[in-house]
């Protein structure tokens, strides 16, 4: 069963259409919710949490309608907001315990689990510190801890690496991946950073201008569309131009960035042509392999 199932969802605010006829399924694992600012991510997250109802269409979260069964759905959801301004004078452990209690855990259980969650995000020693004295990276980890402390089925993380340096960012992404694979909590990661989504997500929902641009397993999305060959050559510019013309002469689309040539083509014969071109031009091959789309390729392709 899908964790989230949206069918033909539209959301209008007066004359403004925030989402239009959106359909997607979110399966277990880590799912990236990708889109530029104003693409409709916030609206979608809000509807998954049950903050507002869709104007039309149907939405099921954990098998229930989040608008009509909001309390029981949200009890099993975790949410880490984007902003960093958590109550500054509150110790992290009190905050995490309070959120765990809000999600239905008895006080003793919430107290124990809040410490466990903070240890998990490597803040065990810092758990009694007021959040106002913590760094951005530590506050981001507190937000992750409060989202998982009550053992939800699904957590929604809104830009969880915002404001982090590269080292902390990688640590946070590793933590999120661990939460999914090690603990078994499913994750929806809202982000506009393609590389981090590509790094840890199993699936992706790409939204833009209020519509779903693409949705599915990341590997499937990268395999769809154009295939071909990527080759990196030991050649000068004249030789690169010669090779490009060779491919074009055989009716293929080829392009080059520095000494890296990308040839589009759907069958194995492209590899043979690439080999023949290099032999004919008497140039060395540094790398020759199948072309795989990056998430950025998919994203840009879907945006048109």
């Amino acid at each position: 069963m899908s964790l989230v199932s949206a069918r033909n969802i539209s959301k209008n605010y007066g004359q403004f259409s925030a989402l239009s006829d959106v359909s997607f399924d979110i399966e277990p694992g880590v799912t990236g919710l990708l889109g530029a600012n104003g693409a409709g991510k916030t609206t979608m997250l809000g509807m998954i949490i049950g903050l507002h109802a869709p104007t039309s269409g149907s939405l099921q979260v954990l098998g229930q309608n989040p608008w009509t069964a909001g309390a029981s759905v949200r009890e099993r959801l975790g949410y880490a907001p984007e902003h960093h301004t958590l109550p500054p004078d509150m110790p992290a452990v009190d905050f995490v315990r309070h959120v765990a209690e809000l999600h239905g855990l008895p006080r003793d259980e919430a107290a124990a689990r809040s410490s466990d969650a903070l240890w998990l995000v490597d803040l065990g020693e810092e758990r009694f510190r007021p959040m106002g004295t913590m760094s951005t990276g530590q506050r981001q980890r507190v937000k992750l801890a409060q989202a998982i402390a009550h053992d939800p089925n699904l957590i929604l993380l809104d830009e969880p690496t915002d404001g982090l340096d590269p080292v902390q960012r990688d640590l946070m992404l590793d933590l999120i991946k661990h939460v999914s694979t090690g603990i078994g909590i499913n994750v929806i990661l809202s982000s506009h950073l393609l590389d981090e989504v590509e790094k840890i997500c199993d699936s992706v929902v790409i939204v833009g201008n209020g519509v779903t641009l693409a949705t599915g397993k990341l590997d499937d999305l990268r395999d769809t569309g154009t295939t071909g060959v990527v080759m990196e050559l030991e050649a000068n510019q004249d030789q690169i131009d010669w090779v490009l013309n060779y491919f074009r002469h055989h009716g293929l689309t080829a392009s080059a960035i520095a000494r890296r040539i990308t040839v589009e083509g759907a069958d194995e014969s492209v590899f043979d042509l690439a080999r023949d071109a290099c032999v004919a031009a008497d140039i060395g091959i540094i790398r020759l392999g199948p072309r795989s789309l990056t998430l950025e390729d998919v994203f840009l392709e879907q945006l048109g």
């Binding site: 949490i49 049950g50 909001g70 309390a71 009890e75 949410y79 959120v99 809000l102």
Partner: peptide
Amino acid sequence: GVYLASPLN
């Protein structure tokens, strides 16, 4: 926002 993502509305 954290409160409204809990059973509270």
